[in-house]
Nucleic acid binder design. Structure first.
Length: 470
RNA sequence: GGCGGCGUAGCCAAGUGGUCUAAGGCGAAGGUCUGCAAAACCUUUAUUCGUCGGUUCGAAUCCGACCGCCGCCUCCA
């Protein structure tokens, strides 16, 4: 049984899809005005792990991540550079896709863009207006929060408490300070579209309501995003969607904890951020994914270079193990036996961890336990059968790589090396073994050192010499 | 001011009523294997879970107070 902590109910609940085996997941994606930072990356990677695990469990997942491509920030950036807002949006959309691919984030099934859903957005606002939940002032349309009973149910806020808060925007066009814009009238030099309320552009919150319901239906399973989106963004999405349809909008709300720097939230406005691309220049994607996996998705994660380095060491252990098994599977002879080793036990432990609200730190611990137990056998006197090594690789491929994405597959030599090179490497290894036999260690070490310079690591094991890639 | 969260070893981090004399990773110390490496293995590294009280046969886990830190209430993953 899979359990998910639901922000809406503030409880861990059994996961029962609205329409099994289908699962609809919507994650708030980027506003494409700049490169995303490593804190944003955390949300993208954790959402990726969630959808990968859902697929692992056999659910038919439809994963949707929106791109906000019309927004104040984009317009501001465009004005600063003296270019079209569209150009900014396109440039950083492209960068976004490059970066998530490097992070090994599986492609979403749909990446809806706000500018391509203006018709749906307008329809939704019309519905709200018809129901008397939205009102217009000049060319703007606002949502009337007092008209929706459930307002505040996600964030646990009460209307009167919010109103007394000191930081609510004052705007005399609004009936209530908490009312938010559904449609903004066009200002000069801003992107705009035709609408029943005149030319303008959509507010931020309405985009997500319109796009998620278009691609996943009026009621769907999971909606995820950063903790900072609970209020007002997700609260407003509920108000808009349920206000318009009268149906429950989302069954499970998942929120990701922040990535902090020295205990402070990483953010563009504080300036304490690293972009994902600059971190990716120094560390492999797997290190970043392992770092995120080692903390529960909802907890804050204090980011630092030292932490990244220590996680990188942990990754080396996983990579080494995977390389070793790939080397051994080619060395062993068919006659060797299958050891006392219960792979199934590890699958169960992995699933138990992931089923419990995606407890990735525990799942990672299972992977390490698995590696330790397998290494223990390998370091013994006996040789083992190909089946044994194949089962190990299968486990690593399905769990560590398939769900968490923390195996550096490209570092396995034979998978991407042309045959000729393999044959030449074999020849060198044989030569080196001969040299070792005649105690010509100078020659043996020279071969090893020179190959090392070319990116191949030779290691002597009881079953023979294996090759790893740097 | 309102609402919410967090505090576990040198560091990161699971665990949320008995299996906890607390998982896993990094680090540190010693050992094994090896021609040397590398990798790996073995042993050690929290009788204790911010502090003080309480509930209970039993608490890191529940309750209360206090201390410290953070977030949301404005755009933000």
């Amino acid at each position: 049984m899979m359990k998910i902590y639901n922000t809406l109910t503030k409880k861990k609940e059994e996961f029962i899809p609205v329409n099994p085996p289908n699962v609809g997941i919507y994650v708030c994606g980027p506003t494409v005005y700049d490169y995303f930072h490593i804190g944003n990356a955390r949300s993208f990677v954790m959402a990726d792990i969630i959808q990968r695990y859902m697929r692992y469990k056999g659910y038919k997942v439809k994963f949707v991540m929106n791109l906000t491509d019309v927004d104040d920030k984009i317009i501001k950036k465009a004005n600063e550079e003296g270019v079209d807002a569209k150009e900014i949006a396109e440039r950083f959309s492209e960068a976004f896709f490059e970066d998530i691919e490097k992070l090994k984030v599986r492609r979403a099934d749909v990446y809806p863009k706000a500018t391509e859903h203006i018709a749906e957005i307008v329809d939704l606002i019309k519905k709200l207006e018809k129901k008397g939940i939205a009102y217009r002032t000049n060319g703007d349309v606002f949502y009337d929060v007092l008209k929706f009973d459930g307002y505040g149910k996600l964030s646990g806020k009460k209307l009167d408490e919010l109103e007394s808060g000191a930081r609510v925007e004052v705007n005399e066009k609004k009936h209530n300070p908490l009312d938010f814009a559904l449609w903004k009238s066009a200002k000069p030099d801003e992107p705009h579209w035709e609408s029943p309320w005149g030319e303008g552009r959509p507010g931020w919150h309405i985009e997500c309501s319109a796009m998620s319901m278009k691609h996943l239906g009026e009621s769907f399973d999971i909606h995820a995003g950063g903790h900072d989106l609970i209020f007002p963004h997700h609260e407003n999405e509920i108000a808009q969607s349920e206000g318009a349809t009268g149906k429950p909008f989302v069954k499970y709300w998942i929120h990701f904890g922040f990535l902090n720097i020295r205990d402070e939230k990483m953010s563009k406005s504080l300036g304490n951020f690293f972009t994902a691309r600059e971190i990716l220049k120094k560390y492999p994607a797997e290190t970043i994914r392992l770092l995120f996996s080692q903390t529960h998705y909802a907890s804050p994660l204090n980011f630092s270079e030292e932490l990244l380095n220590s996680v990188n060491k942990g990754l080396e252990k996983i990579t080494n193990f995977y390389q070793t098994i790939n080397g051994l599977i080619n060395q062993t002879d068919e006659s060797a036996g299958y050891p006392q080793f219960d792979v199934q036990k590890f699958y169960h432990a992995f699933e138990a961890a992931m089923d419990d609200d995606f407890n990735t730190p525990k799942a990672v611990a299972v992977i390490y336990d698995f590696i330790k137990e397998a290494n223990k056998l390998i370091s013994g006197e006996k040789n083992y059968s190909k089946n044994f090594y194949a089962d190990i690789l299968k486990f690593m491929d399905k769990t560590a790589e398939g769900v968490l994405g923390i195996v550096q597959k490209e570092k396995v030599s034979q998978s991407d090396t042309p045959e000729k090179v393999d044959e030449l490497l074999d020849l060198l290894i044989k030569t080196r073994l001969e040299a070792k036999k005649s105690k010509n260690y100078q020659l043996a070490d020279m071969i090893r050192d020179e190959l090392n310079k070319l990116g191949y690591i030779l290691q002597d094991t009881k079953d023979g010499t294996i090759i790893k890639r740097k």
